[in-house]
């Protein structure tokens, strides 16, 4: 399927949950409602026409204008086609629905997005920090992150 056909089938099924799309990009992307990512992901995985059975990558992003987001790169082993999904949220309300129940790969990826950007993944089965120590404060890949002076009595800056 082309990106346009995927977009049309999503729009027919979910209507206003599909916020915007850019199809002439090198990797065409579709922006979806952050509180409905799970059902959209289930549809993309299980619909015989799309069959996105492989989530290649899940990335957190800080757009440096108060907006955070998660980018999902999807691939279909059956149809050999790709699509990129995006879900945006704000720093004040950093909530995006989990897709771990759709692709189990997403579990650790979403924990990393939470660890580094503070995006709260709703309905995640085990939302803990994955890389940083549990007592770490803040989310270091945010653009406004300030490096702490001390961590557990150890000086951090050079």
């Amino acid at each position: 399927m082309t990106a346009e056909e995927i977009l049309n089938s999503l729009k027919a099924k979910f209507g206003d949950a599909i916020v915007e799309a850019k199809l002439d990009a090198p990797q065409p992307w579709i922006v979806v409602n952050p509180s409905r990512t799970k059902e959209i992901a289930f549809f993309l995985r299980d619909d015989p026409a799309t069959r996105f059975d492989y989530m290649m990558c899940l990335s957190g992003v800080d757009y440096n204008n108060g907006k955070l987001g998660i980018v999902y790169h999807l691939f279909s082993m059956v149809h050999r086609h790709k699509i990129v999904l995006k879900a945006f949220c704000t720093k004040e309300q950093p909530h995006i629905q989990s897709v771990t129940s759709v692709w189990a790969t997403a579990n650790w990826h979403e924990r990393e997005a939470f660890d580094m950007y503070g995006i709260v993944i709703d309905e995640h089965p085990d939302l803990r920090r994955i890389l940083l120590p549990y007592d770490w404060e803040g989310h270091p890949l945010r653009k406004d992150y300030q490096v702490p002076e001390f961590y557990n009595g150890m000086k951090v800056p050079y």
Binding site: L132, P140, Y145, V147, P148, M154, K155, V156, P157, Y158
Partner: peptide, 20 residues
Amino acid sequence: NCGGPYWEHGYHVLKGVDRV
């Protein structure tokens, strides 16, 4: 020895193991 390439932007790196 001193943090190496992480000396400036490594928020997670101890700048030299001789600090502990």
